[in-house]
Amino acid sequence: MRADRMMLMCKQAGDQALIDAIRTAGSAVERTRLINELFERHYPRVALWCLRFTGDRESGRDLAQDVFLRALRGLDSYRGASKFSTWLYVIARNQCIRSAQSRASKPEQLQDPSVLDGRKANLELEDERLEREASAGFVRRLMAETLDETERKVMTLHYAEDVPLAAISRLLALQNASGAKAYVVSAKRKLNRALSRHRARDERERVIRQEGA
């Protein structure tokens, strides 16, 4: 009865209040119960993220368990400067990136089923190469200027974090036929267009300078 009342109170309390209660809990049993209560609120959100990241529920579960174990281990360092869910996301993100690298061996992770068959060939043809003179710093700036939000997310996850395209398609719930691959293609095309614009402008300026000299 006492436990029931406490659980009810907890459900109404915000995460922060719950965390405060965890810190001041009088017994290990009570603490454990409160932690469970806190974590349970976030199980569905983390479960969905991990499911999408891995593509199957068993792996998603393993990943989500790792996330909550790390959350449990780091709970002491959570100071409440951000929402608990945001803090949890950072743990989930780091854990997902780790797993992306260690799961890279699974064949299912290597190929993107959405770009198999006929579409693949077409997309490869359209997959432009970057202009050779592009430097990383310059491309970085162009990415911020010219890419849309989805393209930026896809490029960051794929190139910076080594996340397979199939996992990115699931994570971002991309509904188009070729998923994340199409965004890589469009991002590269935009970058190339921006690079040629800049090159043309530089050339114009060079000519003007020469004519002025």
Binding site: W49, Y89, A92, R140, E149, M155, T156
Partner: peptide, 17 residues
Amino acid sequence: CAHCQAEVALMRDFHEA
């Protein structure tokens, strides 16, 4: 910074998925 923009956008995705 496209990288940090993407990071923050992913945080939003996590909350809104």
